[in-house]
Design a protein around this nucleic acid. Structure first.
Lengths: 260, 260
DNA sequence: GGATGTGTTCCGGTAGACGAAACGCCGGCA
DNA sequence: TGCCGGCGTTTCGTCTACCGGAACACATCC
């Protein structure tokens, strides 16, 4: 765990909010608690300032504390659940994701575009953590995930251009990293109405994703089924996803205007 | 939607963080976007300050904007998912909640104590929104919800004392609001190993909840099944919950020390 | 005892924060 | 058309909230 990239946060420590950001982002996705000194080390903010701001964050509930250890506080979870861009989609999609999970027995993801990445809004799965790399609110590259490919294929062409402007990361030996090959995959996805990745993100697994198109015809999200390759039934998943996507988009009141 | 209670936030507007809190909490659980002037009205913070802080929150990603409308930003959702008190429990309980949902076809809730309320960490349900009053990260009173009763019954006696120190709210005509009667219910719950509420929170619905006890023997959370009264099978739910709770508590690495 | 680590408190200095006021734009209405 | 009220943005003199080095208190280890 390293502090946020310095170039993103130049000058951050010369404002209160900048320091608060550094403090809260010192806690990584797998951390439990941190001591004050560890927060200082990770954030680069002066100890007395960290202490002072932490007291105020405690009063707000954004941090919680026991003894000398600090935790991210429940109030963050509460406010985070209010974010309309995830709330409305999740609420609309959840029952259908449950249906898909029951019909397939495999892991179901709901993802949206954020910056140049996929961010997972929801994941329905059982005891086998088949898609271990993914987590709710986690981010993954667009180019090698099925949801990412669906977002690329059915989203604006400018998105593809932006994504391939930087070298594409190779996650597995099967990851497609040549822009030309990726473009062909996306063409195929547009013709077929769904995107697919086979072992491009995790060996032994494949995902099938379809786009959720909003009322004004623009990409809103993508929905996928992820399964171990040996037992995957792509045609079945595509059929189910297709039926479900029509119902979800009917129930979404979210327009693309929701997308800032 | 009204601004945060003034008594909780006396003096809040004389610090940066206090103002940020007022701004972020101006967005309610069902809001989508707010204009700058509406944020000003709800928060009571001066317009120029709201504008200035909003710009910084935009840079951080805690707010997002389109035109002159502001949204809570995806970054809040991301950080909110890092909160260990919800993350670890949810991850442990999710697969079992799916099992329960499949076995019962009814709504499953996972809840923890926060302050003197229940807060729902997760909810698995299908198309019938049987427990409409509840939502993830939503809060409900302890005394009239099954999860709340389980938390009271199996938690420290001091909690009960605190809760009944103030008048208990009557939600439905069936809500138990006399401390003596509530105490009897909790005794019954302790003897039976589970808590139950019948139409105390919503007419026509009942819930059954069991406690999740951590490694050190203290209450960590409560898990419930909620169903329409006419088709509820309490014995079935109790049996299933019992089997599942043993497995969840085995997989929880969370100790009560996680509870600040 | 000294060194090292943790978290807490102090307090003079200052720059970041403040917000009234002005500005520019827009839509509605007489 | 002109006025008004609403919106969001900008300005800039003022000031106090914020800053953080330093001191302090406590704990552990050699």
């Amino acid at each position: 765990m390293h502090p946020p990239i310095a170039s993103d946060l130049d000058g951050a420590a010369n404002s209160v909010l900048g320091k608060v950001r550094l403090i809260l982002e010192a806690f990584g996705p797998d951390d439990e608690s941190l001591g004050l000194s560890e927060i200082v080390r990770r954030s680069g903010v002066a100890k007395a300032s960290v202490h002072r701001l932490a007291q105020e964050l405690l009063r707000w509930g954004l941090l919680e504390r026991r003894g000398s250890e600090y935790w991210l506080g429940m109030r963050l979870f509460e406010i985070g659940q209010r974010v309309p861009r995830q709330r409305i989609l999740r609420e609309a999609a959840r029952p259908y994701m449950e249906d898909l999970y029951q019909a397939t027995g495999e892991t179901i993801h709901l993802a949206v575009l954020d910056g140049l990445e996929v961010i997972y809004l929801e994941k329905v799965s059982g005891h086998s953590q088949v898609s271990r790399p993914s987590r709710v609110a986690g981010r993954m590259p667009l180019h090698c995930t099925a949801t990412g490919k669906a977002l690329l294929a059915f989203g604006p062409a400018s998105l593809f251009t932006e994504v391939v402007a930087a070298p594409l990361a190779r996650i597995t030996p099967r990851t497609v990293i040549l822009p030309k090959l990726l473009a062909q995959e996306l063409d195929q996805a547009r013709k077929a109405g769904y995107a697919i990745e086979r072992e491009q993100i995790r060996i032994g697994y494949l995902s099938v994703a379809i786009p959720l198109i909003g009322a004004t015809g623009t990409m809103v999200a993508a929905l996928s089924v992820t399964a171990p390759t040996f037992r995957a039934d792509v045609n079945k998943y595509v059929g189910l996803l297709g039926m479900v996507s029509r119902r979800i988009t009917k129930s979404i009141t979210l327009s693309d205007e929701q997308r800032p």
